[in-house]
Nucleic acid binder design. Structure first.
Lengths: 168, 168
DNA sequence: CCCAGCTTCATAAGTTGTTATCAGGTAGAC
DNA sequence: GTCTACCTGATAACAACTTATGAAGCTGGG
């Protein structure tokens, strides 16, 4: 069975909503509708369902923000049952469990992130120190070398540098 | 400890809302506030909490209807009723939805952080490699130096080393 | 080539929700 | 008696949200 898709004109007919209203809803509710190559909106059956729900909620008196939240919530549910009535009963249990699980995940993520950050910071610190040491040493050596090369005949400095090098 | 109660004037002060707005909310949200013999409103701490929640939800952009639904539900939550099975309504409690939405936000933030960390780590890695290369080079140079210094009278090698150094 | 159907952007017009104000009243305190 | 703090109800003023309309443009089909 092929995925049914509709263009805005059809949807407008099906739901008895003006096209501009459909576009308005899309924006205000931040619903994402697929487009074809030309940029025309392509509504899937699922989109239609969503819109039907939106209309119902709107009739209930919910404003855009509320509907958006409601959609956010139902969208990620694996199988959004074709719920008819808005039963504000304490469905809690199921969704609550989901939420708690989510929170737990986030919490773990946080821990992990903090851990990572700490490790990164340590590594960075060590690196910086190391680099600092190296570059200082190097510069010093190079400096001395340059001096030696420049001040050709200077035995003393040469010696001191040599001895230092050998001492290492 | 006695139950704290407040009159509308105090509440108005506490929450920085005009009295008429408080009355308006009471009506539109169908909140019940106790009265004294004279008919004056008596707000309990619980009422204050409710109002605080209402204000917060309002800031979130929820309209009266939505807030009313949310309140209906939270009220029941404080007094766990005979919870039935999962009755998945799209609306659930708005407070709850809000919470989930919040968590989701945090989760996304975390994702972003993790992504950033990953980038950081890559940069670090590159840095380390670079450093490693440098230090290896340095060691090599030092080695060569040592060699030269050890093999004192060797002009040829010395020359080659010097020229190499200068060439850099 | 023109029409049909879509797009975006801007703006007007209509609706509704909120807040503010005013009038008319009651009750307790000084 | 007057002041203060509250009440209700009506209405005005403002703000926000929706819906409608128009302009200008793209594209495929007849």
């Amino acid at each position: 069975m092929k995925e049914q898709i509709y263009k805005i004109g059809e949807v407008s007919e099906m739901l008895s909503i003006e096209q501009h209203t459909l576009r308005y809803l899309e924006n205000s509710l931040k619903i994402k509708i697929k487009r074809d190559e030309r940029g025309d909106r392509l509504y899937t059956d699922s989109d239609i369902d969503t819109l039907r729900l939106v209309l119902k909620l709107r009739e209930k008196g919910l404003n855009t923000t509320a509907i958006r939240l409601a959609l956010e919530n139902t969208e990620e549910e694996t199988q959004p049952p074709p719920t008819e009535t808005v039963s504000p009963g304490p469905l809690v249990t199921f969704e609550f469990v989901e939420a708690v699980s989510l929170v737990r995940q986030v919490s773990e993520q946080n821990d992990e992130i903090i851990r990572q950050n700490r490790l990164l910071e340590e590594r960075l610190k060590r690196l910086e120190e190391k680099l600092d040491r190296y570059s200082r040493e190097r510069d010093q050596n190079l400096d001395e070398l340059m001096q030696i090369l420049k001040g050709d005949g200077n035995e003393g400095k040469n010696k001191s540098w040599l001895s230092r090098l050998r001492g290492k």
